[in-house]
Amino acid sequence: MTDSFARDILPAGSWDTANAADRITLDYEGRHRRRYRYRADNELEFVLDLAQTTLLHDGDGLKLDDGRIVLVRAVPEALVAVTANNTDALIKLAWHIGNRHLPAQLSAERILIRDDAVIVEMLRGLGAHVEKIVAPFTPERGAYAHAHDDHQTAAHPFVFTAEHAHDH
């Protein structure tokens, strides 16, 4: 059998998911790739073959070279929702998370991070409110993502990832 290749991403909302030939359900690491061999939920096998490492989003479509489309679904993961008493406190918590180069999903109300007991204890010590949740995780893209044309919306310019970590 000849491999099917996925070289094009159809952004979530730009295509009809009812037309998907199959779907693939992945965690954050599984959705952050450049080249990888996958087996979709209903056994369709294909090779993701992109020009650079890309973060796939829930609802994206991977267009195979034969025209079929594989729907990307983000699997819920064990996360921690970090909140604070006010915006200033939340911004300071975001700084501490970013200073440790942790992947983080940011919003005006909360920060989502992966569940890590040491980090959770540090955040509590800084006055954070933490709640363990299970949800899909789509952290902000890396600081150099613009240079690499990362597939992410421009509405989220803040960056907290280990991808481009450096020593202090």
Score class of each variant (00 low, 15 high):
D3E: 14
R7Y: 05
L10Y: 04
S14K: 14
S14G: 02
W15Q: 03
D16I: 12
A18W: 06
A21N: 06
D22M: 10
R23L: 06
R23A: 06
I24R: 01
L26V: 12
D27S: 08
G30T: 11
R33C: 09
R34M: 14
R35F: 12
Y36F: 14
Y38C: 02
Y38R: 02
A40L: 09
E43C: 01
E45R: 15
D49S: 13
L55Q: 11
L56C: 04
D58P: 03
G61Y: 03
L62C: 04
L64T: 06
L64C: 02
D65I: 10
V70P: 01
L71M: 10
L71I: 09
V72P: 00
V72A: 01
A74C: 06
V75M: 13
E77P: 05
E77W: 10
A78Y: 04
V80K: 00
A81H: 03
V82P: 04
A84P: 04
N85H: 09
N85I: 13
N86P: 04
N86Y: 06
N86R: 09
T87E: 07
I91W: 08
I91R: 12
K92M: 14
K92I: 01
N99K: 14
N99D: 14
H101I: 08
H101A: 12
Q105Y: 07
A108T: 09
A108Q: 12
E109C: 01
E109H: 09
E109S: 13
R110F: 15
R110T: 01
L112I: 05
L112T: 02
R114I: 08
D116K: 11
V118P: 00
V120R: 12
V120S: 01
E121G: 07
M122I: 12
M122C: 00
M122R: 11
M122K: 07
L123H: 01
R124S: 04
G125N: 11
L126D: 00
G127W: 13
G127E: 06
K132Q: 11
K132N: 07
V134C: 07
V134W: 04
P139S: 05
R141D: 03
G142S: 15
G142H: 13
A143V: 15
Y144T: 10
Y144N: 04
A145P: 00
A145H: 07
A145R: 10
D149V: 11
D149M: 07
D150H: 10
A155E: 09
H156Q: 10
F158E: 02
F158P: 01
V159N: 06
A162Q: 13
A162N: 14
H164E: 09
H164M: 06
H166W: 10
D167T: 14
H168G: 08
